[in-house]
Design a protein around this nucleic acid. Structure first.
Length: 573
RNA sequence: CGGGGCGUAGCUCAGGUGGUAGAGCGCAGGCUUUGGGAGCCUGAGGUCGCCGGUUCAAGCCCGGCCGCCCCGACCA
């Protein structure tokens, strides 16, 4: 490709509404453009990267024996009614009508359609196992699209579905996909974790997420460097700590004016948040529930949701606290709790065994200090509700856990018969008996991957692509196009590179050196050959984008050197 | 869906108290320049998000709507 003819609209400044590095740099580098919130166009450079990622995914899927199909974007309502998801998916489903008034949606995922296809065609155990996949644009009317390609409403996804005769085989398919995913993410140069996940509303028996470690991203993962345990933070169990061995002091009421937060209270009383009982008033389906947790801890609302069995809950407002308990936020506690106002008391494990606690008594501007269990208050039922923190004990080996933010790039589910049963996807087994097909489903956010790669690999000048997914592997950059020698050497190298099958771009624009360097850094081609003054002495300079390294090499060996450096770069992730 | 912010040239932004719109970058032409987004000259480019209201006069004031971004709850 010749840059002079290429459609690569780079921008000196990032659009004001871009926040995350991948969003800024992909727009600035001319890879993508925004059309509406969460809806993006892929320009030539962006499409090249997307296709390279897509092909790696495709190769690995095929290698694992999965077969590619292309399902439809437009899905009829009837299919979604069968599983109840027309209503359940709710607002997130893009819905529309055809000219006859029939309802359709734009597919956000394809369990229904694939199950429909398979139930019609697969009748016998002889047709199984089967793994089908597609790489297709999905549509989800997200509550909040965000960070460019990281959370879009229209995005490219690879979704695979496995069909087996029993759980044992289904587990094999699941594991096959899991290994395939690991190979895919390694091939595109990502640092990632494979973590245990909540099966959530998709349901099923087992689920793992693949999380790219990035600053931007909604996934919080905990991992143990000692035993290898790793899980989505929201499912890491935290048990009761050992009982504190501390002499019980006498209960005392103290004035604590205007201490509304744990920090203010701890500072005022010259104690630590660990010694304070935090009481949070929730309204669960409209009914007051008091959650008690240690002051240094936060409630993990995912855990709370699992305990309550509903997502219909929220913290009470200041006004509601006053109406229900007659006190103000900051002074809610279990001492002197007005009778029959709270439906349920829920204790978090973190509070177990803590001595000489600071406890509020529902009297504004007062707290009690040195409250102790049994003597001053009674324990209730304990549950695991706290958010995991850095250094919490690993549930497997007890060593301290590490916590990291990340971006969910893949998710695999062992579904079971959640879709096959309601949709009547049955097969006949060896004994002539009908049984539901055991399914799995496996997703990779392909367009999101592109953003994840950038989030992990950029600097202040631009993107640094891993060679396997770079829009071009090599850029040839003649510094001065009006210098005949430079021009000729660059052209010669360019043609030789093309002959060798190298994915190469030559910046043949009649621009100043600095201008071209800035663009080269921005679009992030991993290796470039700079043709400058020394060209007349038969030397060119190889520059490595990632390290900034510059090496003078004879023109004749430049492309060999390029291959060598590329191989080296592919080994470093 | 709750809270907040923003909408003026392709991009980033400026436009006290209302008087008919500017800068830098980019773009076109020219000269100079060629190892890190250079300099000078000339020029093109705007329904000031949309609709309505107040006013002799609205980018600016008032009302409504739309769009985009951020934080929270939720998701590949």
């Amino acid at each position: 490709m010749r840059w002079s003819r290429a459609f690569i609209p780079t921008l000196k400044e990032a659009p004001a509404d871009a926040v995350s590095p991948s969003h800024k740099l992909l727009v600035r580098g001319g890879f993508i453009r925004q059309v509406a919130a969460g809806i993006y166009e892929f320009l030539p450079l962006g499409l090249k990267v997307l296709k390279k990622i897509e092909n790696i995914v495709r190769e690995e899927m095929n290698k694992a024996g999965a077969q590619e199909v292309l399902l439809t974007v437009l899905n009829p309502r009837e299919l979604w009614e069968e599983t109840g998801r027309w209503a359940l998916y709710g607002e997130e489903l893009f819905k529309l009508k055809d000219r006859h008034g029939r309802d359709f949606c734009l597919g956000p995922t394809h369990e229904e359609e694939i199950t429909d296809l398979v139930r019609k065609e697969v009748k016998s155990y002889k047709d199984l196992p089967l793994i089908l996949y597609q790489i297709q644009t999905k549509f989800r009317d997200e509550k909040r699209p965000r960070f460019g390609l990281i959370r879009a409403r229209e995005f490219l996804m690879k979704d695979a579905y496995s069909f087996d005769t029993n759980y044992e085989d289904a587990k094999k398919s699941y594991e096959l996909m899991g290994q395939s995913y690991e190979r895919i993410f390694r091939r595109i140069g990502l640092k990632f974790l494979r973590v245990l996940a909540d099966t959530g509303q998709i349901g099923g028996k087992k689920s793992e997420e693949f999380v790219a470690l990035t600053l931007y991203g909604e996934a919080k993962v905990a991992y143990c460097e000692s035993c290898g345990y790793s899980a989505n933070a929201e499912i890491v169990p935290l048990s009761k700590p050992p009982v504190e061995e501390e002499e019980e002091k006498s209960l005392q009421k103290v004035e604590t004016p205007n201490t509304r937060t744990i920090e203010e209270l701890a500072k005022f009383l010259k104690t630590r948040p660990e010694k304070i009982m935090k009481s949070l008033l929730y309204l669960v389906e409209g009914k007051p529930v008091l959650v008690l947790i240690r002051g240094d801890r936060e409630v993990d609302e995912n855990k709370l949701e699992r305990l309550l069995g509903t997502d219909n809950f929220r913290l009470a407002t200041d006004e509601e606290i006053k109406a229900i308990l007659g006190t103000e936020r900051g002074f809610v506690g279990i001492l002197n709790l007005p009778p029959n106002r709270v439906e349920r008391l829920i204790w978090d494990n973190s509070l177990y065994g803590v001595k000489n606690l600071v406890v509020a008594s529902n009297e504004t501007h007062y707290h009690y200090i040195n409250a102790n269990p049994e003597r001053d208050f009674e324990y209730g039922e304990f549950y695991d509700l706290a958010e995991v923190k850095n250094g919490d004990p690993c549930p497997k080996c007890g060593k301290p856990l590490k916590l990291s933010r990340g971006l969910e790039i893949g998710h695999i589910f062992l579904l079971g018969t959640r879709y096959s049963e309601p949709m009547n996807a049955y097969f006949v087994d060896k004994n002539g008996k009908e049984k539901p097909i055991v399914m799995g489903c496996y997703g990779i956010g392909v367009s999101r991957l592109m953003a994840a790669i950038v989030e992990q690999s950029y600097d202040e000048n631009g993107i640094i692509w891993y060679p396997n997914v770079a829009p071009f592997e090599l850029e040839i950059l003649p510094l001065n196009m009006s210098d005949e020698t430079q021009k000729q050497v660059a052209e010669k190298l360019y043609n030789q590179a093309l002959e060798r099958g190298i994915d190469v771009i030559i910046d043949d624009r009649d621009e100043r050196a600095g201008f071209k360097f800035k663009d080269a850094d921005l679009i992030g081609i991993p290796i470039r050959i700079v043709v400058g003054r020394k060209a007349k002495d038969g030397l060119v300079e190889i520059q490595i984008r990632k390290t900034g390294e510059k090496i003078d090499v004879p023109v004749d060996s430049a492309l060999d050197k390029f291959e060598e450096i590329k191989e080296k770069l592919l080994k470093e992730t």
